[in-house]
Amino acid sequence: MDDRKVGFDITALPPDPPARPDRARGRAARRPVITGAVVATTIAAAGVAGTITLTGSGNPVGLAAAVQITRKPTYYEARIVDPQAARKRFKAAFARYGLHIDVWLQPVSPHIVGTIVFEDQDERAQQSESEGAGIKMIYDRACRTASGADCSIGLRVPLNFKGHAIVQIGRKAKPGEPYTTTSPKDAVQDLNDLTVAQAEAALARKGLRVGLYNVYWPRWGTSLPRTRIPSQWKVSGAGPYSPGTVRLAIDAQGPMPPDVAAQMKRR
């Protein structure tokens, strides 16, 4: 399936991106953790309250809350436990160990709830990374992004980490809330080469509907309302858009309307 058509939203920033780390000391390092479409194993929510504490050499005791943090010989290992937890719980968990790490939660398609979809660091953290003391990702090889990369399920933070970092974690989307990142495992199969009308009927039988129509010409692509799309045009893919809806990719089989062409040229 063509990632350009059904997975293009994966690396896009959320509609309302969070505040960036302090850049007074220089330019921040910015890394989309999943270059492509995020995916696979969902981390189960713990549904319990409490915080992690450390004893002796660092084995965690007590109940996990938002994130489970374990002290290793040279780093803290942080694994996501409850991707629906309040942001302040994540921040408090990291702050307990003197780590300045903010967590933002973004709505994602089901298979990647609980994965880390983006990371951002300030200059001090970036310098730590260049000195070999930067944050490393914990990857799940069974969890694949649309680009074929492993998705991240946790962090390894050096004990001597300095600076400020932001991570964005995928959470369950609310009804009607568009996903900011999606997984190919949540795509609807067997719609390719159907007409738009046939695809809509097939989706309805699955209890789904189209949330967004993306139409592609040889050089341009854009979203159009259903009223402007001939029912006989062919579908080339269907990616998740929001709970219960899909983003339908359509190959245009006619000329681009003049007003759309004018809009494309202005971009």
Rank of each mutant, 00 (worst) to 15 (best):
R171S: 10
K172M: 12
K172T: 15
K174M: 13
K174D: 14
P175Y: 15
P175Q: 12
G176A: 11
E177D: 11
E177Q: 15
E177C: 10
P178R: 07
P178E: 10
P178D: 14
P178N: 07
P178F: 14
Y179H: 07
Y179G: 01
Y179C: 09
Y179K: 08
Y179S: 01
T181W: 10
T182I: 13
T182R: 06
S183G: 07
S183W: 05
K185I: 12
A187D: 10
A187F: 03
V188R: 11
V188F: 08
V188A: 04
V188I: 15
Q189F: 13
D190N: 07
D190Y: 05
D190V: 11
L191C: 08
N192F: 05
N192T: 14
N192P: 02
D193S: 11
D193A: 09
L194C: 06
T195C: 03
V196N: 00
V196C: 02
V196A: 03
A197N: 03
A197H: 02
A197L: 12
Q198D: 14
Q198S: 09
Q198I: 08
A199Q: 04
A201M: 09
A201P: 00
A202G: 06
A202P: 03
L203H: 02
L203G: 03
L203P: 02
A204V: 13
A204T: 10
R205T: 13
R205E: 13
K206E: 15
K206V: 09
K206P: 00
G207V: 08
G207Y: 11
G207T: 10
L208S: 02
L208M: 05
L208Q: 08
R209N: 13
V210A: 03
G211C: 04
L212S: 15
L212R: 04
Y213R: 06
Y213C: 09
Y213G: 00
N214Y: 06
V215A: 03
V215K: 00
Y216V: 00
Y216E: 00
Y216L: 00
Y216N: 00
W217M: 03
P218Y: 05
R219W: 07
R219D: 03
W220G: 00
W220S: 00
T222P: 00
T222N: 01
T222Y: 03
S223V: 09
L224Y: 10
P225I: 12
R226F: 14
T227I: 08
T227D: 11
R228C: 08
R228L: 14
I229G: 06
I229K: 04
P230K: 09
P230F: 12
S231F: 11
S231P: 01
Q232M: 04
Q232E: 14
Q232H: 15
W233M: 09
W233E: 07
W233I: 08
K234A: 04
K234D: 07
K234V: 05
K234T: 12
V235M: 06
V235D: 04
S236A: 15
G237T: 06
G237H: 02
A238S: 07
A238F: 09
A238L: 09
A238T: 02
G239Q: 05
G239R: 00
G239N: 07
P240M: 10
P240T: 06
Y241E: 08
S242Q: 12
T245F: 10
V246H: 02
V246K: 01
R247F: 03
R247N: 13
R247S: 06
L248E: 04
A249V: 06
A249C: 10
